[in-house]
Design a protein around this nucleic acid. Structure first.
Lengths: 208, 208, 208, 208
DNA sequence: CATGAATGAGCTTTCATTCAT
DNA sequence: TATGAATGAAAGCTCATTCAT
């Protein structure tokens, strides 16, 4: 976490630093992000940087933390006040919330993606500090649906849970590979197609 | 390609160098692979390295080339003598072949994965030297199946094709996240589950 | 151009670095000048050097720029307040000014000479950044004199212009080869002899 | 000098090596000539090179020696059977001989030019091994002419001697700078213009 | 709290030369 | 005589981090 000097900074200066940092971390993997560039672009001195943050990793963790928190906020808003009787419905709401985050804060999404490409060691070190409560939640919803007979019994829910948790990344990847646009309508379409396959793939028909 | 001096080397020495290089390239992205470390670990002098290879990229390309050739070999063995009437069946055979390669040469798989995370420029430069016939092939098989009425008409085949092309990565990711074992049986099971969902998800039933 | 960190340095340190650099560049062609040696001799760290200059060429260009500016200063002082009616007279003044520079800053002269021996590419790159008004000026003066009938009509002014432009180098070379002294008086003598030959060689007598 | 192994080589192989070496030394200053390239281009092994020559300098000196000997041959042919009564006439013959050498062996000329651009130390070391009899010869001819009253008494003959000795280089430089052609006719013209200036410049008229 | 000069280990690459075979 | 693998010092350059002010 940043030192307290960082939080004592005037809002504007803090924002400037974070904006630059976000840009750098969204364009480069951790090892390629240059502190030199960050201090230069944000107009602070090298010394100052190290008075705000312990080191590069400190800054990185702080950014990821911010992203994580914002994501939780979006997700909880999406679920709030919604009955979870239909799993897929509420799940789509979550995915949509995720994409809303992506569209609202594109750099966050990029950084999140990049994070998955880091050194395993680095990933392990950082993820170790977060619980994966999100996945558990999805899994429990699926379990309930399976118990109700809505999902084939032989389906491995861990796998579905995994697929679903990766869905945002898949879609982003898909869009990139096919050079499609990132607008909300298109994403919604792809998401629908995606969910159809999964739903149809795991849903137990009336006569099975 | 390496210089001929490299191929003149005694098998053992050549193997030592390649083993070390494979290890380094499986643990680091290109820019982080250190020639210094490679020469140190393999007990050759820095000068020698540059008598064997033109530069770091030369070594990298050589490794990727080896991997590519071996993969082609595995794939062609998998398809050989099999009729492609059932798309999913022959596709599963290909995926299995890929995993056999992964199990036989785990470092190769890792390096192949890492390759996808490199700088776009580097990827473009290197992939430019290979054709990408693979993806088109999968798509054409799916198209035929859809024309035959085996797949829902509204299904976006590009999406299915994308999912399938990523399946190996998905499975590896899944195994890693859940700390499961990499043995052949387990992979086969996950693959089966995966394919069931996709098949079932896109397959048009008799009564639709 | 050097970075601003360089100009923030205490005068003494900056001078030390420049002195060492001048020595190195006066003793070696660009490709043979060693940054290692420069940092070692001037007692700074390698890292520091690259905080002052972008790279070796940056330092080189800076030095040449200093030389160029000083030369312009000397030349403009020589011409200032002089009527240019007699070409040779004002020309000699310029040459003398050049030699004054050489005597005042011998290393500069050496570096200037060395510059002409660099890779054509390097020369082109660097000279591209300066205008070459000097040569044209000499030629136009000669042309005027020829039109006035002071110079044989058949004399190739390009050749004379060339000879004159090289005169400083010739004299330096001559002094070196004959192990003569570089003092002002001697140079003046050689220059006079030189100019006599050229003047007499191209000058049209009253009766021609 | 090369080792005797070099002279034991079959003519053809020796020629191949020398041809390659001449090409390299005509295109690069000494420090930039690469033994690696020479052995590669001439198809011999590195070890062999060092069985023929002691080191790079050994080869360089040998080449310069060859050039020097050939030049002497051309010059003595030019002077042979010519009465030296008119200094300028015989001198022009020598210059022409020099250019004949240049046209017959362009690489030799290039290497000779490059030699003048080397490190002073290197030049000193190598020239130290040759006498400069050529210059003395020119000087003595001039002296005789001056004693006969054909040349102004106050003219510094050392300077004229110097100018004349540099004349080939001047002309080559002039041709290069003005992008003129290297054919014999053009060279002759420039040489004539040059000599006119010098002759006219130093020659004592009847009425002086 | 701010500064920015200083650091030095690290990087990839080149090269003339040696030496065992 | 011929070979070519081995060498290692040296090159230019980058970078996160420290520390005195």
């Amino acid at each position: 976490m940043p030192k307290k000097t960082f939080f004592n900074l005037p809002e504007e200066k803090r924002k400037k630093i974070m904006d630059v940092a976000l840009e750098e971390f969204s364009n480069n993997l951790f090892s390629k992000v240059s502190i030199n560039k960050i201090v230069e672009k944000s107009g602070i001195s090298k010394g100052s940087f190290y008075q705000y943050f312990n080191n590069k990793k400190d800054l990185y963790k702080y950014i990821l933390d911010q992203i994580f928190k914002l994501k939780m906020e979006y997700l909880s808003n999406a679920i709030k006040g919604r009955d979870t009787n239909d799993f897929f419905e509420s799940f789509e709401a979550m995915i949509e919330a995720g994409f809303k985050l992506t569209l609202d804060y594109p750099l966050y999404a990029k950084i999140g993606q990049n994070f998955m490409l880091e050194d395993e060691k680095l990933i392990a070190e950082i993820t170790g500090e977060y619980s994966t409560q999100g996945d558990d939640f999805v899994f429990s919803l699926l379990k309930k649906a399976q118990d109700n007979g809505e999902i084939y019994e032989h389906i491995d829910l861990k796998l579905v849970s995994f697929l679903i948790s990766k869905i945002s990344l898949f879609i982003l990847d898909y869009i990139k590979i096919n050079n499609e646009s990132m607008d909300y309508g298109n994403i919604k379409n792809i998401l629908n197609d995606f969910m159809f396959i999964i739903k149809n793939g795991i849903r137990r028909g009336k006569d099975d």
